[in-house]
Design a protein around this nucleic acid. Structure first.
Lengths: 164, 164
DNA sequence: GTAAACAATATGATTTTTCATATAGTTTCG
DNA sequence: CGAAACTATATGAAAAATCATATTGTTTAC
């Protein structure tokens, strides 16, 4: 019991000897996401953005004129959170909001030149960082990672049509 | 079907047509983690725990007597956050804190019977949920997911020995 | 045309999380 | 031994995120 051993379980290890957690899919996903993102998120903050802001920027650079709700889904954030993030980014001049002429409830969001410039700086950084990660993986089973993740997402999207 | 589609980008789709984001590793990881965890996290909350509390419980059921800092790493939470979570869980009678006789700075955390009972209820639920997920993946490339994630984590742990 | 149902965004109050730093205990080294 | 450097946890203040609900605009069905 209580492996109080200040020995084998030494100070430094993270404790993943082989219990439940270290082989549990949801842990592996969360840990991988956390650890893999950490370095790049530091770059994001150096560029003066918070993580959710970077996500919005990236989404908009893909799909300009998206609506708040769309952005919330894509950027993995809550709607009310997105509303405020968009407001702050608008104040900073990164984007503008325009109500959709076809449906006044909708707010469409467009990058400004400043926003596009920032995206043009960060997206390539993201690509380079991703390339470095992929480089670490080539050869290993890690090479399968992206297809495997897409497969999981596809399977889940099919099933749980709750959120739509 | 009020398909209010202001054109190609219709209402329901998440907008991942094929831009940068939808093929970006860090997005895939974060999204997969989010979506895959959502259902189970709902069960966790029904059991009266918040997600970080569940994580602590699971880690302790693997490694009883862990210290706060260890738990923070394993449960993917900040140290100061962990301190408070542990305090709250102690108040609820799920665990107890004992200062390590060998090193008075360290606080070792042990599950109580109540804590162990709750873990004995939730861990099997987690296993079943995981099994259901794996079931969805068998056949596809998704089957490679766990090895691929482990490979990524291993590669990153090797590199960034920052946090240790 | 209008009330009911619905949909998209906004907002106030609260809870959760982080950040910086304080406190307490330990080790190193002269 | 004792000061400096270090390590583990705690804590106050601030920032971020969430929840419930309000507000505004649109569609449906009579």
């Amino acid at each position: 019991m209580t492996q109080q051993k200040t020995d084998a379980t030494s100070d430094k290890d993270t404790g993943q000897e082989g219990g439940f957690v270290s082989d549990y899919l949801l842990y592996l996903l969360a840990a991988a996401s956390d650890v893999a993102s950490a370095q790049f998120h530091a770059q994001v903050r150096k560029a003066g953005l918070r993580v959710p802001e970077w996500r919005v920027l990236a989404c908009l650079s893909d799909t300009d004129g998206a609506m708040i709700t769309q952005l919330a889904r894509q950027a993995l954030a809550e709607q009310s959170r997105l509303t405020r993030i968009i407001a702050q980014m608008e104040e900073r001049g990164l984007l503008i909001r325009r109500s959709d002429p076809a449906d006044g409830r909708r707010v469409r969001v467009y990058l400004t030149d400043a926003g596009r410039a920032l995206a043009a700086e960060l997206v390539p950084q993201a690509r380079r960082h991703e390339a470095a990660l992929m480089e670490m993986l080539k050869g290993n089973e890690g090479a399968q990672l992206k297809p495997a993740l897409k497969s999981l997402l596809a399977a889940l999207d099919d099933t749980a049509d709750q959120r739509r």
